[in-house]
């Protein structure tokens, strides 16, 4: 198991794995609130207007919740070079899972429920743009891999996953903002709708620009 030795020597990746495991667990806990199916639970408790008046809202919401947790699995495996080299097929299988789930389920459903987002027009715009960019980046990354342009594939998958990871960062920002300022709930929501993904995207753009070779490969 040469790659395992390599893995544990890579402290950055190890730190990421541990942190991501913790955050993944938090997201899993949120997802499990929606088992068994219930039209008036967790977030849906304040969404009964949509649940009762928009027939497709509830199914779309559930597609988003159930599919999106699968997307995060990519964070464990897809961005490590040693893993990629030693287990090419694992990368491919999980890659296909990610792409299919994002393009056919998570991103389209995200776009639809984004149209009904809390916090008014500003957060609706934020979530709709997020969904469209997520779809476009993921599609681009897939086509690049098909075309064997792996540099471009890696860059677009970084962008795609930065947006997927907004599920986590949005909720982290919320905890921080509420702790510091105790704003009214929808005021927070309007802020995190943007803060959840824009900095993530800026971060990977910086990563792509400055560390085209080194850091991306180690991360």
């Amino acid at each position: 198991m040469a790659f395992l030795r390599k893995l544990t020597r890579n402290y950055w990746y190890l730190a990421w794995l541990l942190a991501f495991l913790f955050l993944f667990f938090l997201m899993l806990r949120i997802t499990l609130k929606y088992f068994p199916f219930n039209s008036d639970v967790a977030f849906l408790q304040i969404k009964q207007t949509e649940v009762n008046n928009v027939s497709f809202y509830l199914p779309t919401f559930y597609v988003h919740v159930y599919s999106s947790i699968l997307v995060l699995v990519a964070g464990f495996t897809q961005f490590n070079n040693s893993l990629l080299k030693s287990y090419r097929n694992l990368h491919r299988v999980l890659g296909y899972l990610y792409v299919i789930v994002v393009l056919f389920f998570s991103a389209p459903s995200g776009l639809v429920i984004g149209l009904f987002a809390n916090g008014g027009l500003s957060s609706k715009v934020a979530f709709v743009i997020l969904a469209i960019l997520w779809f476009v980046f993921t599609l681009n990354a897939t086509l690049s891999a098909k075309g064997r342009d792996f540099k471009r594939h890696r860059e677009f998958m970084l962008r795609s996953f930065a947006l997927a990871f907004s599920a986590v960062t949005l909720r982290l920002w919320k905890v921080i903002l509420v702790y510091l300022f105790q704003p009214a709930p929808m005021d927070v929501y309007q802020i995190i709708a943007w803060l959840g993904w824009v900095p993530n995207l800026l971060f990977v753009e910086w990563l792509i620009k400055n560390n085209t070779n080194k850091k991306i490969q180690t991360l």
Binding site: A42, F43, Q45, I46, R171, K174, V175, V178, P185
Partner: peptide, 16 residues
């Protein structure tokens, strides 16, 4: 009451 419960459970926690 429903909104109070939601606020209680969710306002300052990791979630929405």
């Amino acid at each position: 009451e429903k909104f109070e419960k939601y606020a209680e459970d969710n306002y300052d926690t990791f979630g929405r």
